Amino acid sequence: MNAMTRLSVTAVSAAATLALAIGATTLATPANADPVSLEPAMSASATPAPTTGPTTPAPTPTVSTPGTPTPTTTSPAPKPPKKAKKKGKAKISNYKRLTKRAKKVALKVRSGWASIKSIGGWRAGSRYSGDHPAGRAIDVMIPSWKKNKNLGYSIAKYFAKHAKKYKIHYVIYRQKIWTTQNPRWRSMADRGGATANHFDHVHISVKR
């Protein structure tokens, strides 16, 4: 074998040896292997290190509630002064059944003599005349009549004096009578009692 031939055989052998070495290296490293990471992988179960240093607590939300007003102490309002009680007016019995003239006399008594509390008006029967059943007479009752005779006289004499204005027929008080036909006071017969003799009331009759 000449020198050229030996060189060719040597070259082929070297090439084959190199090819085998490369193949062995390729088989040792899988084609799908991940490249080597320069940083170590962190395990999924690893817990991060706690942060050191002061921490600011989360702000607590402020809940707005309606405020309760502070009670104020006030003095009670002064009570208004009591009104003076009005004097009661005389009650007129069966007023609606009186004639117009008799009503006028009764109202005058009630307005002119506040101490009078009761005035008799119409009534169904009368022993001595028909003036009460006709609605033409009133009886002015005198309170505490035994000591208030002057009150009765003031009423009796007033209507005798103003007989024309009020169309008076006659007036009787304390067993005395005054009439328009005989305008003077004169005594009457005893009828048997204080009421029958008109000591406790003034009787006033008006004309028709």
Rank of each mutant, 00 (worst) to 15 (best):
K85E: 13
K147N: 10
V12I: 10
G23A: 14
G67A: 15
F159V: 03
G193I: 11
V9F: 13
K86Y: 01
M188W: 01
L151Y: 03
P78H: 04
N150E: 12
V63H: 05
R191S: 05
K176I: 03
H201C: 10
T65L: 08
M4C: 00
S144F: 06
I177A: 07
S64N: 10
A196S: 13
E39Y: 12
T60K: 10
G130C: 05
A134R: 11
T56C: 01
M4S: 04
S118Y: 15
N94C: 01
H203C: 05
V171T: 02
A24S: 08
T73Q: 00
T180M: 09
K91P: 00
K161A: 09
N2K: 11
T180I: 15
I138P: 02
T25V: 14
P35S: 11
H132P: 00
R6Q: 12
P59K: 11
L107H: 05
L107R: 12
V140Q: 09
T62W: 03
G135E: 10
H169A: 13
A196R: 11
L38K: 10
D131A: 07
S118W: 14
S144Y: 09
I155P: 01
D139Q: 09
M188L: 15
P48A: 11
A58C: 02
D131G: 00
A46Y: 13
